[in-house]
Design a protein around this nucleic acid. Structure first.
Lengths: 338, 338
DNA sequence: TAATTAATTGAATCCGCATTCAATATAACA
DNA sequence: TGTTATATTGAATGCGGATTCAATTAATTA
């Protein structure tokens, strides 16, 4: 590759100093029209593009944010990332995405990497509620906004849904359809959002006098295969559930998969309600009943708040914490219990 | 935010020079064990992390690659990105993803941005076959690998499927099921992959003596809504197609959506075959028949080849061009025409 | 033991741009 | 017309590491 052309090259060609080139690049006032024109011409002729790395080093900001997600393969994350990237692009920010595959050590690794890359701030969409690291960053006043997740204590900025309520209305919906045998498919409760949904699930059961049955609960790692198998086995059992409340649409699809392989009809034989409202859920071929997480709102808010923090408009004593309302979206995967 | 600690700080604390710190950081040989230990201790104590921006500037490489995709919301891209990011992470490379929303000017903008950020190379997964820019980059020997796309002429490195054949076997599958009224849902033929599929579609029709009918063709912009409406209208028409060949699973889902809203049964009333084999297609609740694009293989290859180019193991006279075999995967959305 | 060779380490530079400091040239003002 | 404020630039320096050059010291070899 031919070596790049630098601002010095431009300066030489235009017969000015590098400082001047820098000035026209940054649109400073007080540049003689003729000078500016010469520089612009040289830039054009040489095909110069500013080295953002050098600029970042000099300016101490990178105009880049980090986005840590659990799994880009899960449409909830992909779609959220899409919104964030779109907004970021409008604001001339670039984003580096990291996939943790929901593993704590990957989270730490990603954070370290992003900090090494000197990103201006980070949006984290999947964090263990006991994470020390997040609290540390918060205390060091490094701009971080948690997206659809949070940690114990009050040491973080976050945008979340009222997860307890979301779970509650989901289960309530099933109960009102006559279901009493409600499986609950979630994930590790080390994720605060899930922990809160556990509470909502239990609360709804309690309110309707339905006993909590560990047999119907999945709360291990996120794994399509494992969840699929768990559901498959459950559907083989003699006292099989008539419905499933699943804490993500992605996993709800796994339940539908298992049901289909059992030749069970949805919702006649089994009802399924998810959580997230990913794009495909509204596809009427699927029509997944779910709890909506307004991704556009959440994602925009997250980015907006992060930028505020980056600009220094934040205070440790006053974390940014937004809790949105969940909404039940009834489609065709839930129906009366038979 | 408290100011960062630099290698100088570490050096001072350890009582050595910054050069030495740099050396232990980079694991140079010939460092006295004691010195190394002192430095490491200082690093630990100060919580130092190297400034990758500064390192990039000095080294003239960023250990970062760019990935330009058409739409992160389309699982084909998201899943491909997942594979690439995973592999990249293993090799200690970071990736900056750009979404073009399939717009040419966004492609140019993204490339410019990535080059500004001095990425070591770029994988591009959505490019207009007439793109001048790609050719320029190729000629300037900037490391670029096209993923699932290519351009006219021979001036690019790419990993693609045999798209013509893919389309051909898809249509053949439908014809063999008795379909003669086959709608073809694609996108702008300015994408070479799609153009090739057009050819495959026509070739199969021709071979079976089925007339090409413009009324059954969608070849405008990618838009879920538009495609949905096109299919919906087509399904209303009196001489409606008995089957659809769609050039992406994502869009095939839109057809299923439209069919469902028409209360049409799949595959009894209408057959649908997609292209890509995204994860959800194998979900038996959906069971989309499709043409497989081995994402893992393609993505791994793309990254692998890109790294080769980055390491300077490439030559302009010998572009890297890999063409993979498509494979028909029959599931439940295709059946005999009635 | 003297001559080499290898091991260690620091000083100085460079990467490419932003920015401060100071100088020069103009324009506005008393 | 002498001053003072304003417009325009360039030289020099810094950002935080990597690396080259040279110096110093320890290990080997003749």
């Amino acid at each position: 590759m031919k070596s790049r052309v630098s601002a010095y090259d431009v300066a030489r060609k235009a017969g000015v100093s590098q400082s001047t080139v820098s000035r026209v690049l940054n649109n400073f006032p007080h540049i003689k029209e003729g000078t500016k024109k010469k520089v612009l011409a040289a830039i054009e002729e040489l095909g110069f593009t500013r080295d953002e790395i050098a600029r970042s080093l000099a300016e101490k900001k990178t105009r880049t944010i980090g986005l840590i997600i659990g799994d880009i393969t899960n449409p909830f994350f992909a779609e959220s990332a899409g919104v964030i990237m779109g907004k970021a692009a409008e604001l001339e920010y670039d984003v580096i995405i990291c996939n943790t595959n929901h593993q704590d050590d990957n989270l730490e690794k990603s954070i370290k990497m992003l900090i090494g890359k000197r990103v201006d701030g980070i949006i984290i969409a999947a964090v263990n509620r006991y994470s020390k690291k997040i609290k540390e960053l918060y205390e060091a006043q490094f701009p971080v906004v948690l997206y659809n997740s949070s940690i114990e204590g009050n040491h973080a900025n976050f945008i979340v849904l009222d997860n307890e309520k979301g779970a509650y209305i989901a289960v309530k919906h099933l109960v009102e359809l006559g279901h009493r045998n409600i499986a609950y498919i979630s994930g590790p409760s080390k994720f605060l959002t899930l922990h809160q949904r556990d509470i909502g699930y239990k609360k709804a059961l309690g309110e309707y006098g339905i006993p909590y049955n560990q047999r119907l609960i999945y709360d291990r790692e996120f794994s399509y295969r494992e969840i699929y198998q768990f559901a498959y086995k459950l559907l083989c059992s003699k006292d099989k559930p008539t419905s499933f409340f699943v804490t993500s649409d992605q996993m709800a699809l796994a339940i539908l998969d298992a049901a289909a392989n059992h030749n069970l009809e949805v919702p006649k034989d089994v009802s399924v309600i998810g959580f997230d409202d990913i794009n495909i859920s509204s596809n009427q071929y699927i029509g997944l009943t779910t709890i909506s997480q307004k991704k556009e709102t959440m994602a925009s808010l997250a980015l907006e708040k992060l930028l505020l923090l980056i600009e220094g408009k934040g205070s440790i004593s006053m974390p940014i914490q937004v809790v949105l309302e969940p909404k039940l979206i009834i489609r065709k995967t839930t129906g009366r219990a038979n």
